[in-house]
Amino acid sequence: MLSSIHPLAKLVACLVWLTASILIFSAPFQLAIIGSAIVALVFIEQRSPLLVLALMVPFALFGFGFLTTSVLFRQESDFALRMAGETPLGGEAFSAGIVLFLRAIACGLISAAFALTTDAGQFIKALMADWRLSPRIGYALFSAMQFVPDLAVEAQQIRLARAMRRGRPPRRIPGPLETASLIVPLLAYAIRRASRAAIAMEARGLDTGINRTVLGAPLLHRRDAAFIGIAFALLPLLWWISKF
């Protein structure tokens, strides 16, 4: 369902939810956001729970940093402690840390909900068509997006060329030294690729000053307005529920 929503409508909703998560310093509210995001991703969008869990690992580590900082360095966390106010989850410092931890997870889940249900190409097209993103920036983003997976292929080609020089097949997974030695050639490849793409785009008429057509950009529908309405209405409802 979320996948069929206009990327910009989804972006606006996600930004509002992120803002709410940052401003409302309440553990139950953060839990309500987390619950909603999980319902949307796992039950409505049918994404693998394992994938969602894996995506939350960096956010959990980030949040854990907040938690330990709050508990161990109370003075520095004074602002958070005051914001935490009531302490239903044990000590004041621990409670503040928990809220910060949950907030990191909630923000991560909202971002994941956007990223996992949005086609990046459609998102850039929507930005160019509706929000007047400069085509130069839009197509630079396009190129960068397509470039990332190609780096792995390029790295493998370099490893093969080196292996041939040495006369023995490459290891399945490169060691730390080999990985470090790939950085400069890959950087050179990235620069080469970027300059070629720039020349190709120039030769094919990018940015001639006229208002270009954007083919295949997503169109706004009534369901997008309904989605925005529901997303906005859900926030005060969650806040109200979280107070009990």
């Binding site: 190409g121 396009f142 470039f147 030769a203 270009r212």
Partner: peptide, 28 residues
């Protein structure tokens, strides 16, 4: 160009073919 990678901008096939035409602001 000689190397097709110098002609293509690194998008999908449909977007590549459309790219120059979009730049000329032709109707969709």
């Amino acid at each position: 160009f000689q190397n097709p990678e110098q002609t293509l901008c690194g998008m999908t096939v449909g977007d590549e073919v459309a790219f120059a035409l979009e730049n000329q602001a032709l109707p969709a």
